[in-house]
Design a protein around this nucleic acid. Structure first.
Lengths: 204, 204
DNA sequence: CCTACCGATCGGTAGG
DNA sequence: CCTACCGATCGGTAGG
């Protein structure tokens, strides 16, 4: 594992991408969201996928391997989104606006994975957990930089940027926890309401 | 249990309040916060309290009993705080301001219990879980009523009140997750920053 | 409050 | 991908 991470040319032992593996990860995200990682069992997961528990191990290395795949998969999506955002030449306020709607898009497209990533990451083993936390810290720093730039040019009111960042992110993270695509509020209204709330809240 | 809830005069079987029980609940809140409910074991809890696992059962009925005691204990505190707030004759904006600072006070006074209540409640058994959800729903409705009153009298900008309520609560809930009393931001700055953010965000 | 212990269930492996 | 199974550990009880 260590060798594989340091030298990505060496493939991890025997496990590859496959439709089956993707299906296992998708069902696992749903299960982990419902019960939490620790209370989810491989037997229940296997049942939902339509396999025996032992057969899962042809597609995944361990229970923690599934969690890591979900968390890092989502972290990469958020990371790519942030990289795109940074490449655009727009004002900090406009950056924050787009960040909000991109977050909502991802949270609604991957509701289970987003919740698992945010609330189950601590169950990864030490090495993965530290690597994951480093990614998240970098992401949070990029948001703080946006806020600081806006405070410097006077478009954002002076305030503790870390508190603003956490307030913003927590409002967005919990979308997936209460949003039910069928019978609830349309995405556009969510986007407008949260954007207005946050932008009004931070504007100078 | 059902009888006890309907008719509180009948005491629940044999377990009473005691210093020891309070200590177990306090250590359990810390453990559940660290590992989550499902990944916390009675043996580790017993170890932290300084007992054998079997001895815990002289003070609590079951693992779920501990979780329920923590969740309902906190729910009562939030409920009492809300009742006090409703009794005061102040404007909706002023109510929301006080609600925010009361939330921050409770989150900083009971950081472990607040996180456990918010993120582990779903591990209670059916009956307790439903009773707990009813309490929370009522609490959320009271906040929505505040917001609606403010929108009616023109002091709060028109927006979907449920989204505002969830955004507000999630900003506050996650305080305990990243606030470290020693080396971080003073409470007053947190209070001011979050109050400004939310009040500016919702004001007309 | 402890020693001793139980049935159930867990993640995972062997071997085909 | 399944049958068969393992060692470990879980929440909880009996009895003192």
């Amino acid at each position: 594992m260590l060798v594989w991470y340091i030298c990505p040319m060496v493939a991890p032992p025997k496990i590859k991408h496959s439709k089956r593996r993707d299906e296992i990860l998708r069902m696992a995200a749903q299960l982990f969201k419902e019960k939490g990682f620790a209370a989810s069992t491989m037997r229940v997961l296997a049942d939902r996928v339509g396999l025996e528990a032992a057969s899962l191990y042809n597609h995944i290395r361990s229970k923690e391997d599934i969690l890591a795949a979900i968390c890092f998969g989502m972290a990469e999506r958020y990371d790519a989104m942030m990289a795109d955002l940074q490449r655009e030449d727009i004002s900090p306020i406009e950056q924050i606006k787009r960040l909000i709607s991109n977050h909502i898009d991802l949270a609604l497209q991957y509701p289970n994975e987003t919740i698992v990533m945010d609330s189950e990451w601590s169950h990864m083993q030490r090495e993965d957990r530290q690597r994951y936390r480093a990614l998240i810290s970098r992401y949070e720093s990029q948001i703080i930089n946006m806020l600081n730039t806006g405070m410097d040019n006077g478009s954002i009111a002076l305030a503790h940027p870390r508190i603003l960042m956490y307030s913003m992110l927590s409002s967005l993270k919990w979308l997936g926890a209460w949003y039910h695509p069928k019978r609830e509020i349309p995405k556009e209204e969510i986007n407008k309401t949260i954007q207005d709330l946050i932008i009004m809240g931070i504007s100078q």
